[in-house]
Design a protein around this nucleic acid. Structure first.
Lengths: 133, 133
DNA sequence: TCTAATCTCTATAGTAAGTATAGAGTCAAG
DNA sequence: CTTGACTCTATACTTACTATAGAGATTAGA
């Protein structure tokens, strides 16, 4: 299949596929006489793997590591676990940060009713004076 | 004061200050004979305002809007409220997404113990087969 | 067979909000 | 007068793509 069909089947965009190739996540496929990329079902599988990983917010570099791990199947998979654990931690922190941000913003929102002028706006006043915590 | 002191006092980096100037968030200051930027306390105040906004994850473009609103103090501040409300909504969505991601990743983590080989790794197996939801 | 539409190619620029760097100039103190 | 700290501009880099230009390839219909 050509890149358009691969894109449709994998759910990645055509440009993203070319991007993954450039970044070394997928290997350069064979070409037709007219220089079009030709893919087989292995490429589709790999793309789906990549897509799943991206869905978990794994970075391309990390996905690259996972792929290279798949090529040395007998070594222990500690590295995989560590990567996932680190992500779990990062996500938890990010959630906590956002929650705090949400609370702050909600507080701020209460400073201003709806029909005031900018001059009297409690939000703008607050933004000028909050000190870092 | 020169840019280094302003940076220290405001908590922004020197490059960030120059960046804000280039983006039109702060006006170009006077220069010394030797072409160094010279700031007064108004600039410091403005930078603190910007820093507070950035702490709330407001984009530079949005901050720019807020600053221009401050220059027309008599118009209603609906726009400010709307911006804050939109952010509250965006943050809530982001938290929900991350929570879901966290749960998925935690499930995935359970697929693999600690001492297995990559070949048997449940995580990698799962990543190859999850279908999009 | 011609042609128009669609697909693909490469290369480049843009996104957000800065950080990092190079290479040059300025200033203050010893 | 020289050394070190500071500043200047301009450029490249970061992430994971998307968008675009301009060209060539392929396919379907007339």
């Amino acid at each position: 299949m050509k890149i358009g069909e691969l894109a449709k089947r994998s759910g990645c965009s055509v440009q993203a596929i070319r991007h993954y190739e450039k970044e070394g996540l997928i290997s350069p496929p064979n070409r037709t006489e007219g220089n079009f990329r030709v893919y087989n079902s292995d490429a589709l599988e790999k793309l789906i793997f990549i897509k799943n990983c991206r869905g978990l917010d794994l970075a391309l570099d990390e996905i690259k590591q996972l792929i290279s791990l798949q090529f040395s199947p007998s070594i222990p998979c500690e590295a995989v676990n560590e990567m996932v654990d680190m992500h779990l931690y990062a996500i938890k922190s990010r959630i906590a940060d956002l929650q705090k941000l949400h609370d702050t913003l909600k507080q701020l929102r209460l400073k201003c009713g709806s029909a005031r002028s900018v001059e009297q706006c409690g939000i703008l006043a607050e933004l000028s004076s909050i000190t870092d915590s």
